[in-house]
Design a protein around this nucleic acid. Structure first.
Length: 568
RNA sequence: GGCUGGGUAGCUCAGCUGGUUAGAGCGCACGACUCAUAAUCGUGAGGUCGGGAGUUCAAGUCUCCCCCCCGCCA
């Protein structure tokens, strides 16, 4: 039994995530966690909301709420929707937790002791009326490049030029509209990544278990040369900056930059979990306290790769403390909406809460796993979604389960019958089952989700093919024992299909197992195929399940296309 | 304009460090079956791997140039 720590990139707090976010980290992390639990491993799956930063403040302001209240509410919403999607986190924490503040301050102070943090003086816009420094996006004014009058401090939306707030002509506060601004010197902390560069490169060199494109992203950053990063911001909402555990002089109105504290959230959420459950968080994160045998697997979208391969490791390695660093890293590409970007404002794309209004979670889980953006970007289209789900789930799996259970119920009174002599069809199936099960497991081990799903489906197809070969409906007329063998074997195969499908479609798998009278936990099938296919012996009763997956109809697709946008 | 990532059968995608007749699913055509959600099973037709040049005994797979798409940034 191995110990496996799984994290998925933290969803940002400002609203419900879309299907691309789900497909790119949270869902595969869950599928992987479920598979590993089925294998009997000790799994700790951690996620959390990423709550700090300017966008959170802006979103709260837009909602007319206090930031804390806004985050409280949004956190609960995201947690609930995730659970409805079957995301089986062991803990879903928050980066706004006291645990995260403490750990973030600990890391910053430790890094400083190790000479990796410098205090620098920068020039920044100060709003006298607001009584605060204004971060980039809180200053607006006329663009010095194109004359656009509503340019933001970080960038002009009109000409696209990247700006420094102090360059703006006639700047004003986006908070109050006040023009009573001045440029003042202000102190910030910088993480000296330049000093860490060779060390991080060596660490990346030694890494395996990353997709090639993840490694190339890390090298690209390293090749361009790491820059020292300012890790503090002039915001109220965030982790306060401290020194020796006390508020740091000159930093009373500053907090750590969201990208500094967010990945630390993986650790702090584990600590939240430990405090709630009595678990031992250090045994998962400190190699001097038991984590040396932990395999740590991170899931993320490709936009997050640099932060996980360079920035976060810089924090961990720079501390000179025995923190666990990532072992295997799985990065996903983009799920695109008809080849373009998901866009809330343009009414393109489906968000997690909306998806659940349309169809149960398993439909989405299957589609996003079997056709997800794993090796390259993947296109979501309604037509593709409809045809994939209908064929795979309704026709191949649903129909297989349904036909064998119904036939067995009507011909053998819902009791697994005995009798019959295994022949060619059974031999073929045994060979098929052992091949497929081995493939499914090895693809999951390798975190090849599309391939694992394809093999899972191949097992379902083998079920249909077996019935074609065994023809119990034909034998029933002349040789009931032979028909009994087909039914018994078919039902055993249904069980195997359900168990192996659990990581991806847990609800449907549960319904199937319930139909077989197998409520509760089921472990990954053990033994040889012959034994697996006779695990459920004669005499056990079963009942046909309700239709597992209703087909998606054309008029539904038409309606959804109208509602959510489709081909551009 | 710069920088990633792409451009492989009608569609969506696999093809690791170059090596037998380039793969899968869907769709399509034909055949079989009737237990089943008009589901299933079998067979088959489909690709000069974006274009050009080069390296090599051998390139979808390496090098260079060009074209196009998505995304990020300027």
């Amino acid at each position: 039994m191995a110990r496996i720590l799984i994290t998925s990139a933290l969803p940002y707090i400002n609203g419900v995530k879309h299907l691309g976010n789900l497909a790119g980290s949270m869902l595969p992390a869950d599928v992987y966690a479920r598979f590993m639990r089925l294998q009997g491993h000790d799994v700790l799956a951690i996620c959390a909301t990423d709550e700090h930063g300017t966008p959170a403040e802006l979103a709260a302001a837009a909602a007319g709420q206090d930031v804390r209240a806004y985050c409280d509410e949004q956190h609960e919403i995201q947690k609930s929707i995730g659970e409805q999607f079957g995301l089986s986190w062991d803990y879903f924490g928050r980066t706004s937790s006291p645990q995260n503040a403490e750990l973030t301050q600990h890391f910053a102070e430790t890094l400083e002791k190790n000479g990796l943090i410098a205090e620098v003086v920068e020039q920044q816009v100060y709003s006298i009326d607001d009584g605060r420094f204004l971060p980039d996006r809180y200053v607006e004014g006329t663009c010095p490049n194109c004359g656009f009058e509503k340019a933001r401090g970080d960038q002009c939306d009109n000409c696209g030029k990247l700006l420094d707030p102090i360059e703006l002509i006639e700047p004003y506060s986006a908070v109050s509209g006040s023009k009573n601004l001045e440029v003042r010197d202000t102190k910030h902390l910088q993480l000296k990544q330049t000093v860490m560069e060779e060390r991080i490169r060596a660490w990346v060199d030694g890494a395996d278990g990353w997709p090639s494109f993840a490694k190339s992203i890390a090298y690209k950053w390293l090749d361009e040369g790491l820059r020292d990063r300012t890790i503090t911001r002039d915001l109220k909402w965030g982790v306060p900056v401290t020194k020796d555990g006390q508020p740091r002089e000159g930093f009373e109105d500053k907090v750590f930059y969201v990208w500094f504290d967010a990945p630390i959230g993986y650790i702090s959420a584990t600590r939240e979990w430990a405090e709630e459950t009595g678990g031992d968080w250090e045994s998962w994160w400190r190699t001097d306290k038991g984590a040396d045998d932990v395999r740590y697997v991170e899931f993320m979208g490709k936009d997050n790769v640099a932060f996980h391969t360079v920035s976060f490791p810089a924090t961990l390695l720079g501390s000179e403390e025995p923190w666990k660093t990532v072992d295997a890293l799985k990065a996903f590409n983009w799920l695109t909406w008809y080849g373009g970007k998901f866009s809330t404002s343009n009414k393109r794309g489906v968000f997690m809460d909306q998806a659940l209004e349309l169809l149960p979670a398993d439909y989405w889980r299957w589609y996003l796993t079997a056709y997800g953006p794993e090796g390259s970007d993947a296109q979501f289209t309604w037509d593709h979604f409809q045809s994939s789900v209908n064929k795979d789930l309704a026709d191949v799996l649903g129909n297989f389960v349904n036909r064998i259970l119904k036939f067995g119920a009507s011909r053998f009174d819902g009791v697994i019958p005995e009798g019959g002599t295994p022949g060619e069809a059974e031999a073929w199936l045994e060979s098929e089952v052992s091949t497929r099960l081995a493939n499914i497991a090895s693809h999951y081990e390798a975190m090849e989700f599309r391939k694992a799903a394809a093999e899972t489906r191949a097992l379902w197809a083998a079920g249909n093919e077996y019935l074609t070969r065994a023809e119990p409906w034909v034998h029933f007329k002349t040789d009931k024992d032979q028909a009994a063998l087909g039914v018994r074997t078919g039902i055993n195969l249904v069980r195997l299909c359900a168990i192996t499908a659990q990581p991806v479609i847990p609800d449907a798998a549960g319904k199937i197992l319930a139909a077989l009278g197998l409520e509760g936990a089921a472990d990954w099938p053990q033994g040889d195929a012959k034994a697996m296919l006779s695990a459920l012996g004669p005499g056990r009763s079963f009942a046909p399940a309700d239709i597992l997956f209703a087909k998606i109809e054309d008029d539904q697709v038409a309606e959804w296309t109208e509602r959510f946008g489709g081909a551009a």
